[in-house]
Design a protein around this nucleic acid. Structure first.
Length: 273
DNA sequence: AGCCAGGCTGCGA
DNA sequence: TCGCAGCATGGC
């Protein structure tokens, strides 16, 4: 990998990172394409990316900002090529690992990830994105006159309450978001601290929130807490497991790479071909 | 028009 | 403990 600054921004060269796969594989709902530019919000900032022949260009990003925020967000320090080789050695994984090459597991904000996947239940991706945008516009703050809004804090959502959250058209999930906001605002759950405890403890804690079950908790563990052994099972993954694996197959065999294997399987089944 | 969506809760057996 | 209807809304 080779990182350097130029006048448009920062270039990540000689990296396996594929922003198309990474941001279009359903782990993140805050980015959109305009032509070949990918723009969205994370950690209260706007990020603008483009895949160029030199590598991935992060527009108007300095080396300092990259080091401080985006390197970790984009999970640039993990050796995905090595992990991909390991995963592809498991029976039935070679194809998925090959097609999923370039996917990174984003290190998203834990609180935002929790809300995003509460919203995701029994929902489709375009509408999930729409609801999250409404939440940000109604309860977040505008980021430097960009017309884009930060994700609201738990305190703001707790104060707003289920009735006002309902105005985002999120339906029955409003009361779930309100419960999550209340628990976090009161301090009975601290999403950031769940990064530091075990995967099992994080999932158990998350499941005490109304509307959070095993699938949502595993998505939060994987996409927001860095617990890469998480293996979210949704309808797509259930289908994959039934089609290609033995009935008694246990994803725990992937160990700490289970979440990455899961993303490869999900992407392969859902998006490729 | 009608099925389905990166599921979960609450109920009944 | 397991199975399953119901859930709000809107994408396709």
């Amino acid at each position: 990998m080779n990182i350097y600054e130029k006048k448009e921004g920062l270039v990540i060269a000689d990296s396996d990172l594929d922003i198309q796969k990474t941001f279009d594989c359903g782990q993140c709902f805050r980015f959109d394409w305009q032509d070949d530019c990918l723009t969205g919000e994370a950690f209260g900032k706007v990020l603008n990316m483009q895949s160029t022949e030199d590598g991935v260009l992060l527009k108007n990003v300095s080396m300092a900002e990259y080091e401080e925020i985006w390197k970790h967000y984009l999970d640039m320090e993990r050796d995905y090529e090595s992990i991909g080789r390991t995963i592809s050695e498991f029976k039935g994984m070679a194809d998925a690992a090959e097609r999923g090459r370039g996917i990174h597991i984003l290190n998203q904000d834990p609180w935002e990830t929790l809300c995003s996947f509460i919203i995701s239940q029994n929902n489709n991706i375009p509408r999930i994105k729409k609801i999250i945008r409404s939440l940000c516009e109604m309860f977040g703050n505008e980021i430097e006159d960009t017309g884009r809004y930060s994700f609201p804090t738990a305190e703001v959502l707790a104060t707003a309450g289920a009735d006002r959250i309902y105005e985002t058209r999120c339906g029955f999930r409003a009361k779930y978001l309100a419960d999550a906001a209340e628990k976090v605002a009161r301090g009975s759950i601290d999403p950031n601290s769940l990064r530091l405890c075990s995967y099992e403890e994080a999932v158990t804690t998350l499941c005490t929130i109304k509307g959070v079950g095993p699938k949502v908790a595993n998505c939060v563990a994987l996409f927001g807490l860095g617990h890469t052994e998480a293996f979210p099972v949704d309808v797509w993954i259930k289908r994959v497991l039934e089609k290609y694996f033995e009935p008694d197959f246990d994803p725990a065999v992937f160990g700490k790479h289970a979440g990455i294997a899961q993303q490869y399987l999900f992407y392969n089944e859902r998006y490729s071909v």
